[in-house]
Amino acid sequence: MNKNTEDASPLAQSEVQMRKGMLVYCVLLLLKDGKVYTSEIIRALHDAELIVVEGTLYPLLSRLAKDGLLAYEWQESEQGPPRKYYWLTDPGQTLLLDLKKTYHKLHASVTTLEKELKK
């Protein structure tokens, strides 16, 4: 209950939305160069301060895989439980490029806007 009221603050909400908007792009970006397993994705996103908790990522990955943007396979690991490796499918690659364009456009727009306001 307390968490709900916290999350409802305008700043927190916008921030959550902003992060979520970026998350798909960042995940695709991480997988650009080949197979990566779940924990590595989590660590990278965590280190980049893009996610705080891991929970958000599991439904995202499963949905991307379901939509055919990601492919995955299970591999045994020497230490610990088996790992799920993800990589980009062709539609995934296309989406990555599209999102990249969108992101840069957005970035440019925001930068322009910020500069205009400084004047």
Partner: peptide, 10 residues
Amino acid sequence: QLGDPKDFAD
């Protein structure tokens, strides 16, 4: 680490 259960919602 994993977060609130509702974070897992798609």
